[in-house]
Simulated assay, not measured.
Amino acid sequence: MCTGKCAKCIGASLYPLAFCCIVANLLLFFPNFQLDYVQDTSKLTPEVLYLGGIFGGGIMMFLSIAFAGVGVLGSAYCLIVSSLGLVNGPMCQTGNANWSRPFYMDPDKLELTDRSYLFHPEIWDRECKQPKDIIVFNVVLFALLIGFSGIELVLCLLQMINGLFGCICGTCGKRSSGPV
């Protein structure tokens, strides 16, 4: 059996087996299909409570795709938070010596004529006195975070799809036409 067929067979077997392990472990909480025992776990076998079927036989089998999924969530979170940081502007000391976010635009009070501070660099030093050049600092770093997390998002999505198809369909490979 070639490695591609073997990987396909293993991958196609792992997911149903992982599902069966989870279901079996859950059923162990209900001996004889009765709800009485789950309320008093002292009447259950300790190994049922160790959740070996759920974690070991179930969840651990999904980890390669799950970690890529966690990467998708993490990169999407970074992308959203960084975008908000860029749009809302930095916290800085304003002309009246108070610390605030002078460029923050409240979505409830936003009008169509309002423009972002990003398009008006001439007001940056006038509105933010300290720290020096905080707006450029924030814009550059938040823009980098947006770019990096966007790339991470795409790569994690590709890894998740690749892992799923790799487990289900197996690996790609050419057969050699003769001896090497």
Rank of each mutant, 00 (worst) to 15 (best):
L35H: 06
F148C: 08
L51F: 15
L155E: 04
N88P: 05
M160H: 05
G56T: 07
S13I: 07
N162E: 12
W99P: 08
M91V: 15
R101K: 15
E111A: 10
A18F: 02
S83Y: 11
P31N: 06
L79C: 11
A76P: 04
E122W: 07
E152V: 10
S82C: 06
L49R: 12
V70C: 10
L145P: 04
G52F: 15
N96E: 07
C172G: 10
C21G: 01
V70E: 02
S177I: 14
V48Y: 13
Y104C: 04
P131V: 04
L153F: 15
P121W: 01
G52R: 02
V23W: 03
G56S: 11
G57T: 02
P131F: 09
P107S: 04
F119W: 13
S176T: 12
C78Y: 14
M60D: 13
S177T: 14
F62I: 03
F165M: 13
V154W: 13
A76R: 03
D106T: 09
V87F: 14
D133L: 15
T113W: 03
G52E: 06
F165C: 11
F30Q: 00
F103L: 05
R115T: 09
G147P: 00
I59G: 00
K43G: 08
R126H: 12
Y77R: 00
I65A: 07
C172F: 15
K43S: 05
P107C: 04
L17V: 05
L63S: 08
F62C: 07
T113K: 02
S149C: 10
C78H: 06
G58T: 02
E127G: 00
D125S: 13
L79K: 06
A12S: 11
M1H: 10
L158T: 10
A143V: 09
G53L: 01
K132M: 10
M91D: 13
D114R: 02
F30Y: 12
Q93A: 11
I59M: 03
Y77M: 13
L35Q: 00
S13K: 00
D125M: 08
A7N: 06
